[in-house]
Write a protein that binds this DNA or RNA. Structure first.
Ligand code: MN
Ligand code: MN
Length: 586
DNA sequence: ACCATGCACGCACGG
DNA sequence: CCTTCAAGCG
DNA sequence: CCGTGCGTGCATCGCTTGAAG
C-alpha cells in the first residue's frame, strides 16, 4: 500500500508562530491533495500568501482563528506580530482586508460596547424615547425596528469613533480550506493546539497520498452551501426564506443526508412558527426517518388521518430501522382508531414483547438517582458501576479497534480522526466484514480477553468513538471480562454492528458485577434506574427487549424518595409487572 | 460526530 | 460593587 | 391513573479577561 506514516502534524507551542506553522501545514496539505479542487484564483491566493512577510501571514491567521470576520484594530494586538498597521499593509494591498468595511447595524452592535453605542446612536436613542440606561438588546431592537438601516462604514455610524474596524475578506476561502482538510467544519485550528497540549490524542492511521474527504469541487461547495443555510437558520432567518434556497439533493449520499438534516431542522422551525404546510413539504423532501415521523405527527395534529395512515403503512414497508418502527407502531393504532378501525389488543401487546423485572426502591433523597441506587445495591463482593453506554461500547471499541481504524480509502484523511468517516454509513460493516469476523471469532475461542486488555493498555487515551477512557478503568474492565460471558458479548456486539448509529446508546445506567457468584448463577446484572416521573426511552426499551429475548439479566428500578429521613430502611418490593407469555415461559 | 447528542425532568393531552 | 457569560488563548 | 408527545436543561480543556447587567 502506498502509505506514509503521519508526520507529527502539530507545531510546538514554544514556537511563537505555532499557529502560523499549523495553518501552513493545512495549506500545503490541501495544496498537495486537493489541488484539482481549487480554483485558479485560490491557487494564486496560496501563492501570494507564501510570499507575504511573516508578520502579515501571522496576522491573517490570527484573524482567521478568531470569531467573525470583523475586527477592531484596538483589539488586534499581538506581541509576536508587533506593529499591526504595518502587518496589515500587504493584506490590504491584496484586497484580503478591507480597511473601511460597510457595517450592518447587527455588526455594529457586535463590535461596539454599550457605552460606545450610546454615543454613536445618541440621536436614535433620543428619537425613540429610550431610557438612558436601556440595555444593549433594547437598543438594538429599537434600531433594527427602523426601516432599511443601510450598511455604512464605522465613521458614518459614529463620526467620533477613535478606533477602526477592518474586515477579513478571505474568511470564506479559509473555511473552504479547513473544510477540505478536516472533511467537516466542526473541527478547527484549535485541534492542533489541543493535540499539542496532549488534551486529545488520535490514532495514527496510515494515509495514502490520495486520501481526501471530497472528490470534486462541487461536493465542497455543496457542503459549504448547506452549512451557510444552517447558520442563517440558527441566526433566526425564516424557514420560508431559506427553504427556497436549498439545492436539490446531491447524488453523494453523505451530502444528501446532510441536506435532509437541514430540511428537518428547517421543518421544525417552520412548525414552531406555525407554518405546518411548509413543514410538511420540508419533511417530505428530507425523507429521512426522523423527518418521516415528524411529517406523520404533523399530519395527525392537522387531523389528516387518512394521509397519515397511508404514509405510515408505506414507511413500515420501506425498511425502517427499529427506532422508526417503534414510533410508527405507536402512531398506527391511534390513526386506525381515528379512521374508525377496530384496534386489537394484541397489536399493542405484541410490540412490548418482553418485559424486564421491574421494582421500586424507596430511598432517602432527593439526590442523583443513579448514584443512590448504585450505593443501595452495592455490596463488597458485588460492586455496582454507573456506566450507561460506556462499558459495552467500550468493550466493543477495544475488541474491534483494528476494524474501526482500518485504513480504508475514504475513511481517514487527516491526522485528527476520532473514528472513520464512514462509521455510520450503510456499508461500514460489509466493507470490513472479514476483519469483523476475525474479531468475533476471538469471542468463540477465548482470545478476546487478552486482546481487549492489551488494546486497553496499548491505546490508552487515544480518541475512539466507542471508548470513553475516563469511565472504563482497568479494574472495571478486568471485572467485566470475568463476569460477562462471551456469548452475551457476542450478541450485544452483533446488535451494535446491526446499526451502530442507533444502537450505540440506550444501555442501562448501572451494572453490578459478581465475580464470586457460584458457577451456574449469573455473574452480572444491568439496572436501568428511573427517578420519579421518568420513563424508559425508546432506545432503552429496545436494548431491554433485546436483553430479555437473550435471557440477559436486566432490571428496571424505579426510585421513590422517602419523605422521612430514615436511611436504614430500604424496602424492595416487587411490583406487578405486565405479564407477557414470553416472560413466563423463560 | 459538529448548535449536537444522550440523558433526565416536567408539563400537557386524550383515553 | 458583585455575578455571569462568551471570547480568546495555549 | 395510563401512555404519549414535546419542550427544557445539562455537558463537552481549563484559565484569563472584558463586557453586561
Ligand atoms: Mn441514565
Ligand atoms: Mn436511568
Amino acid at each position: 500500500m502506498n502509505s506514509a506514516p503521519v508526520a507529527p502534524a502539530t507545531a510546538s507551542l514554544d514556537d511563537p508562530f505555532y499557529y502560523l506553522t499549523n495553518f501552513r501545514y493545512v495549506v500545503s496539505w490541501v495544496n498537495a491533495r486537493h489541488h484539482d479542487l481549487l480554483s485558479a484564483t485560490e491557487r494564486d491566493a496560496i501563492g501570494h500568501f507564501e510570499t507575504l512577510p511573516q508578520a502579515s501571514q501571522a496576522l491573517l491567521v490570527r484573524m482567521v482563528m478568531r470569531k467573525g470576520e470583523l475586527f477592531r484594530l484596538d483589539k488586534l494586538s499581538y506581541a509576536e506580530i508587533g506593529d499591526t498597521e504595518q502587518a496589515l499593509v500587504p493584506l490590504v494591498a491584496l484586497g484580503w482586508v478591507d480597511r473601511a468595511p460597510q457595517l450592518t447595524s447587527r455588526e455594529l452592535f457586535r463590535l461596539l460596547r454599550l457605552s460606545e453605542l450610546r454615543q454613536a446612536l445618541a440621536d436614535e436613542i433620543a428619537n425613540a424615547g429610550l431610557a438612558r440606561n436601556s440595555t444593549k438588546a433594547a437598543l438594538q431592537a429599537a434600531v433594527e425596528e427602523k426601516p432599511l438601516q443601510a450598511p455604512a462604514p464605522l465613521q458614518q455610524w459614529w463620526p467620533a469613533a477613535t478606533t477602526q474596524v477592518v474586515r477579513l475578506t478571505v474568511m470564506a476561502f479559509c473555511d473552504r480550506l479547513r473544510l477540505m482538510f478536516f472533511g467537516n467544519l466542526r473541527q478547527d485550528w484549535a485541534e492542533f493546539v489541543l493535540t499539542e497540549l496532549g488534551l486529545q490524542r488520535f490514532e495514527q492511521v496510515p494515509l495514502t497520498a490520495e486520501s481526501r474527504a471530497f472528490q470534486s469541487r462541487e461536493e465542497v461547495t455543496t457542503y459549504l452551501t448547506l452549512h451557510r443555510l444552517r447558520e442563517r437558520l440558527d441566526d433566526g432567518e425564516l424557514p420560508q426564506t431559506l427553504s427556497t434556497q436549498v439545492l436539490p439533493a446531491s447524488s453523494n449520499r453523505w451530502l444528501a443526508s446532510r441536506r435532509a438534516r437541514l430540511l428537518l431542522t428547517m421543518g421544525r422551525e417552520a412548525e414552531r412558527g406555525g407554518d405546518s404546510e411548509l413543514a410538511l413539504t420540508l419533511y417530505a423532501d428530507a425523507n429521512n426517518s426522523d423527518a418521516r415521523i415528524r411529517r406523520l405527527r404533523v399530519l395527525e395534529r392537522l387531523g389528516r388521518y387518512s394521509d397519515a395512515y397511508k404514509l405510515t403503512i408505506s414507511a413500515l414497508d420501506a425498511q425502517p430501522h427499529e427506532g422508526e418502527i417503534q414510533a410508527l407502531m405507536r402512531l398506527l393504532p391511534r390513526l386506525a382508531r381515528k379512521l374508525g378501525q377496530k384496534v386489537e389488543r394484541s397489536d399493542r401487546a405484541e410490540q412490548q414483547a418482553a418485559q424486564a423485572l421491574t421494582y421500586v426502591l424507596h430511598l432517602p433523597g432527593p439526590q442523583p438517582v443513579e448514584r443512590a441506587v448504585a450505593e443501595a445495591l452495592a455490596t463488597p463482593t458485588a460492586p455496582v458501576y454507573y456506566v450507561e453506554n460506556s462499558l459495552l461500547t467500550g468493550l466493543f471499541g477495544l475488541l474491534f479497534w483494528p476494524v474501526i481504524f482500518k485504513p480504508l480509502p475514504g475513511a481517514f484523511f487527516h491526522p485528527f480522526h476520532s473514528g472513520p468517516a464512514d462509521l455510520y454509513r450503510e456499508d461500514f460493516v460489509p466493507q470490513r466484514q472479514a476483519d469483523i469476523n476475525a474479531c468475533l471469532a476471538q469471542l468463540d475461542d477465548g482470545r478476546y480477553k487478552e486482546t481487549i486488555l492489551r488494546t486497553w493498555h496499548a491505546k490508552q487515551g487515544i480518541a475512539s468513538p466507542f471508548v470513553h477512557w475516563g469511565i472504563v478503568s482497568e479494574e472495571l474492565l478486568a471485572l467485566a471480562l470475568k463476569c460477562l460471558p462471551p456469548a452475551h458479548l457476542r450478541a450485544c456486539f452483533m446488535r451494535l454492528l446491526d446499526d451502530l448509529k442507533h444502537n450505540r446508546a440506550g444501555l442501562p445506567d448501572l451494572i453490578q458485577l459478581m465475580p464470586d457468584a457460584p458457577p451456574r448463577e449469573p455473574r452480572y446484572k444491568m439496572i436501568e434506574v428511573k427517578g420519579p416521573g421518568d420513563r424508559l426511552q425508546d432506545n432503552q426499551r429496545r436494548w431491554i427487549d433485546f436483553f430479555c429475548r437473550h435471557s440477559m439479566p436486566v432490571e428496571v428500578c424505579h426510585v421513590r424518595w422517602q419523605p422521612a429521613p430514615e436511611p436504614e430502611e430500604i424496602k424492595k418490593e416487587e411490583s406487578k409487572q405486565k405479564k407477557s407469555k414470553q416472560e413466563d415461559a423463560e
